[in-house]
């Protein structure tokens, strides 16, 4: 099995050139998809028989929650790659993904709270998923804070990698214990994000929105990764030519 592809993938310069070609496509497709999906969800789908129009928030809340969780999983894989194969690009990805993941985590929390108001009349509901999302936000902030606190790049890279691996081991435990805690204390309230049997005309815009958000995330990550590459490889000749 030749590993050249894998190692080539690891070199920042190669990634910089390839991503240069992908970027315009990503930008156009993600923004178009998001606009179409949200317009469709907002204006053209009929309201939900139970929750009325407030359910339209689902087209942001669900993609944001999915994204927040899957970004953390991606960070854990990048962390494993950094620790095992010591590929610098993986650490750059880890460093770059954290703020994006945190922003989507906040978006999911806020939209969940806003959605809770018309449905239950209170802004914050200690629902199992919202609480797990809140703890996930703590994990994100922990990684961003640790990255800021350690100044030598190598030590910071490996420390954040270890922290995100410890975090990813902890996520199922947290989810399990929060769900268990939730059922213990509350009766069977309507689970906020449990999708009521989705009528097809609601399901399609949701899937489109999820795809749009994921493409948007890839685009943002490629943008940030290219900048991180320039900053980290500033001593190499190809960056010096690029900059001057």
């Amino acid at each position: 099995m030749n590993w050249t592809f894998f190692h080539k993938l690891g070199s920042p310069k190669w990634f910089y050139d390839i991503s240069g070609k992908w970027l315009p496509w990503l930008q156009v497709s993600s923004l178009v998809l998001i606009l179409v999906a949200l317009a469709w969800g907002l204006a053209f789908t009929p309201p939900d028989y139970l929750q009325g129009n407030s359910y339209r928030i689902i087209f942001i809340h669900v993609p944001a929650s999915f994204l927040a969780q899957s970004i953390y999983m991606m960070m854990a894989t990048a962390a494993a790659v950094t620790l095992i194969w010591r590929i610098k690009l993986a650490d750059m990805a880890l460093k770059v993904m954290a703020p994006v993941g945190a922003s989507f985590c906040i978006l999911s929390l806020v939209t969940g709270a806003i959605w809770g108001q018309p449905t239950w009349g209170t802004w914050w509901v200690w629902d199992a998923r919202l609480t797990s999302m809140l703890i996930l936000l703590f994990l994100y902030i922990g990684i961003i804070a640790l990255r800021g606190a350690i100044h030598t790049t190598e030590a910071a890279a490996k420390a954040c990698a270890i922290l995100s691996l410890v975090g990813v081991v902890n996520i199922p435990i947290i989810k399990f214990s929060v769900d268990w805690w939730n059922t213990l204390h509350q009766g069977a309230t309507l689970k906020l994000t449990e999708k009521p049997s989705m009528a097809p005309e609601m399901l399609w815009p949701l899937l489109l929105a999820i795809l749009g958000f994921y493409l948007f995330f890839t685009m943002v990550m490629v943008l940030r990764l290219r900048i991180e590459i320039i900053s980290r490889e500033r001593k190499t000749r190809w960056v010096k030519e690029l900059v001057s």
């Binding site: 998001i34 949200l38 907002l42 309201p47 009325g52 129009n53 407030s54 339209r56 928030i57 942001i60 809340h61 944001a64 703020p99 994006v100 922003s103 989507f104 906040i106 978006l107 806020v110 939209t111 806003i114 959605w115 108001q117 018309p118 948007f216 943002v220 943008l223 940030r224 900048i227």
Partner: peptide
Amino acid sequence: MEGHGLYVWSAYTMALAVIAYNLIAP
């Protein structure tokens, strides 16, 4: 939106803010 407009639009402006942050920060 039959009374729910405030919540839906505030959620969407929040989404717009996050998307704008992720575009401008890089």
